[in-house]
Design a protein around this nucleic acid. Structure first.
Lengths: 341, 341
DNA sequence: CATTCTCTTGGTATCGCTACCATCCTATAG
DNA sequence: CTATAGGATGGTAGCGATACCAAGAGAATG
């Protein structure tokens, strides 16, 4: 836990100073700043003048303590680095800001224990709402959320029983749909490359979707067609090469995550394997990159931005007074058929 | 500004409750939690037991108000979406967290007025430190920073006169070095594609560096070789095509930002232009993508992660008591020569 | 013209914690 | 055995705002 530090140089001006200089009571200053309409124009002008003269910045810490309200929302993502989250974060940040809220952000590094520690820390900071990308949580997280009653949004998957509200798509359905799509296109030996499965409900659901589709297609469920790889270009390339070696007849690869598919595509370019002639490639998540690569890559469009926007909107509504309501919003997904399949 | 909202369901347990149940004074609880070593083991155990029993979460808002210290650092970036920033943010976040600090994040959308509003808002939240990517600021920002005395780090460029501390590389030198590098490789007609210049000191410095290098190379400074484009694949592709049309003899393109270079590279693949045979391509910032594309792309490695890490470390040191000191740390850059030039 | 009502303004008591100082206890020295 | 230092505890007074209620000033009503 450790150190915090003394705020230095502040010749801290406070509300009572402004009040004195404006010749009004502190309460009037407080009101003039927060609910200008409840104060006469004369007062408001006096207050505004004093505020400007001294460059006064209200102390929101004091305000929050006093009012028992906070205007900070906490967000925990597995990794900040990932551009998928970045889209969502941007959307959340924009909606929050438009409504006068701020965003405190932390990354759990895909570790449930870290998520737990961060949830506790954010709640200690008395955030007024929480957005969690993860949908499986330690018991203490569930307890804390229940006990404090903070509104929570889960965004990474559609859990059967959300903690509170969930805004997401079904990883299972998405992976199933893409696999089925490949089947419809005539591919028969479809490899599946997944992100690490440990502590990751999204990955597990995607794999489940893949197998479900195979079954529906009447194709054999061959575990050796499934490879687990951390995200990244090289990892995608490696995975494809390994699959091609162990399964010479492989006709398609479905890369369920990150930039794996692009890595595989580049590998094909290097080796002169025609895509989709020699092997078809499908991806997950509509990175800009996939639309511009040569050939363009078939993928699943997940509305990350919309997930962020709607999450923040729901949170803001609740914070502004909407009654608590267990919600489970499916934003859906879309198969984007391109040249690579 | 608008609404905040009432924290609902909290059956808020406070320190005095814990104290009562542990049979000690509130002060002892406070100490047991913050400086366990100053409290006898017996007391500590009693306190810990009560804390666990009730799932007590100290209220940091109250703590901050009382101690006049905060453990939240504010960060303002032009855009959260951009993966370059994402690397830096991740590093900042990790270092802060390891030292018990939290990160409040906001994006200015490249607008100085928004930056100003956000700085004010973050200071009102009484952040204990600030990281700004921008290095040109409105007057009010400079005033606020001076008046409040919060430690500030600027990271986007090396300003001649930092507000406080700066951790960055020189955009001017980097662009100059790459342009000179292209010159050394024998390219004589080098196009330059820049991100928007408005309110953006980084872009302007890069363009200055480009022209400086041309001069040193004894090449003519032809303004029509410079194109301004928002970041993006298509924009990079368009820019290259336009340059090739207006300057048939163009032998190299230096794309100073974002994914412009990759967009251009893809365009070359589509048109069958050999890279670097027909035209060479150089980029700015070492995105993973550039190392894996076919051909691999020559670029400038900017240590974004290191910038974030060192920024956070400097901030933490200062917050932990290091004396204020105007610093200007140049983390440098590196030219990465690859196949595309 | 008295009375009631509404709209503004101000006073006071917290909000939950920490700083600071006083007190107490135990250990060591004289 | 008394004196004294030093560590461990507790009491009290804020931190800087807001909630809540009381009071005053006009406006509207009978």
């Amino acid at each position: 836990m450790s150190g915090k530090a003394k705020r230095s140089g502040g010749d801290d001006i406070k509300m009572s100073d402004i009040a004195r200089h404006a010749g009004v009571s502190p309460m009037t200053v407080s009101r003039a700043l927060r609910e200008p309409s409840t104060v006469s124009e004369k007062m408001r002008r006096k207050v505004d003048a004093a505020v400007r003269e001294f460059g006064y910045l209200p102390n929101r810490i004091a305000g929050s303590l006093s009012s028992k309200r906070s205007n900070v929302v906490g967000l925990i993502v597995p990794s900040i680095r990932n551009s998928l989250y970045a889209n969502m974060i941007q959307a959340i940040s924009d909606v929050l800001r438009a409504n006068g809220f701020h965003l405190m952000i932390a990354n759990s590094g895909h570790r449930l224990d870290d998520e737990e520690a961060l949830v506790a820390a954010l709640l200690a900071q008395r955030v007024c709402g929480l957005v969690l990308h993860n949908t499986t949580h330690n018991k203490r997280v569930r307890d804390l959320v229940a006990k404090t009653g903070v509104p929570v949004i889960e965004t990474g998957n559609l859990p059967a029983e959300p903690l509170d509200m969930a805004v997401s798509y079904s990883n299972f359905e998405a992976a199933r749909a893409m696999t089925a799509h490949l089947g419809r296109l005539g591919y028969r030996k479809i490899g599946f490359v997944t992100l690490p499965l440990r502590d990751n409900d999204r990955s597990k659901e995607r794999r489940r979707g893949y197998f479900a589709a195979l079954k529906e297609l009447g194709l054999p469920a061959d575990p050796s067609l499934v490879l687990e790889a951390p995200g990244g270009f090289s990892e995608g390339a490696d995975a494809l090469v390994r699959l091609m070696q162990t399964h010479p007849g492989l006709d398609a690869g479905f890369f369920a995550g990150d930039v794996l598919a692009v890595g595989a595509l580049f590998e094909c370019q290097r080796r002169g394997w025609a895509v989709p002639g020699r092997v078809a490639i499908a991806s997950f998540d509509d990175l800009d990159l996939l639309r511009h690569a040569v050939p363009t890559v078939t993928t699943l469009r997940i509305p990350r931005h919309e997930i962020g926007r709607r999450s923040a909107e729901l949170l803001v509504n609740r914070l502004l007074g909407a009654p608590p309501e267990r919600l489970r919003i499916d934003v859906g997904f879309e198969i984007v058929q391109r040249e690579s399949t």
